[in-house]
Write a protein that binds this DNA or RNA. Structure first.
Length: 215
DNA sequence: ATCCCGAGGG
DNA sequence: CCCTCTGGAT
């Protein structure tokens, strides 16, 4: 079982089973997706989707959000992890979008990471989902699943190291899909605690299964 | 007690 | 590299 064989099996498995995988965040435009992804840090997508309708009703675009007062915005994100940081980041992000990018959400990783509250993972999500750029966002799920299956070296200790290995082996036109495949697999099958290995079709090539689970 | 589509700062 | 931020679900 070479690494190439493992990738081929995994890609074919997802193509056969969940070819339609996409983000579960609810959004209508790049601004809304950016806000949602910023809010999603250490928080479930379901909870983000519960809070964003009221948020977008009051602040539908970067212009309105840039003028938001911290004390007005805070209650709208209070049920999310790190509400103080995120409220501050959202207002700062909106201000920079207006002042530096003419009110348009930039669509390169280098520009996006300049925005407050936007790191490499968020920038990769935006450019991949909105613009189909072959950028692999490595979140907690992608990190865990990639290591468990054996898609990346155990020496890949950081999300960036995992990202570089994944994009090296995944064909460019599958990178966008592969992000969502690994996310959703991690969310529903290869969960952090007690992964559901016997519901998982990837177990024939999975290092974790071979090492820790006996049939 | 641990985890959820992380980022910023030291 | 480390730490802090910090609500809700399981």
């Amino acid at each position: 079982m070479t690494k190439k064989d493992r990738y081929q099996f995994v890609i074919q498995y997802f193509l056969d089973h969940t070819p339609e995988a996409e983000t579960e965040l609810v959004y209508d435009n790049p601004f809304q997706l950016l806000v949602s992804v910023i809010l999603s840090a250490q928080c479930t997508d379901k909870r983000v989707n519960m809070t964003t309708p009221a948020l977008f009703a009051q602040y539908p675009d970067a212009a309105s959000l840039s003028k938001a007062g911290f004390d007005d915005l805070l209650p709208l994100v209070k049920s999310i992890s790190y509400p103080n940081n995120k409220a501050k980041h959202l207002i700062g992000m909106a201000n920079m979008v207006i002042s530096e990018f003419g009110g348009i959400i930039p669509m390169t990783v280098d520009e996006l990471v300049k925005l407050p509250g936007v790191g490499r993972k968020t920038a990769n999500v935006i450019t991949s989902v909105i613009d189909n750029q072959p950028n692999m966002a490595v979140d907690t799920h992608v990190f865990r699943v990639s290591h468990r299956i054996g898609l990346v070296s155990s020496r890949a200790k950081t999300p960036y190291a995992v990202e570089k290995e994944l994009v090296k082996y995944i064909p460019e036109h599958y990178v966008h899909k592969a992000h969502h495949w690994l996310i959703l697999h991690g969310r529903y099958i290869c969960v952090a605690r007690q992964p559901k290995c016997f519901e998982c079709g990837i177990r024939p090539v999975c290092k974790f299964f071979k090492k820790n689970v006996k049939e």
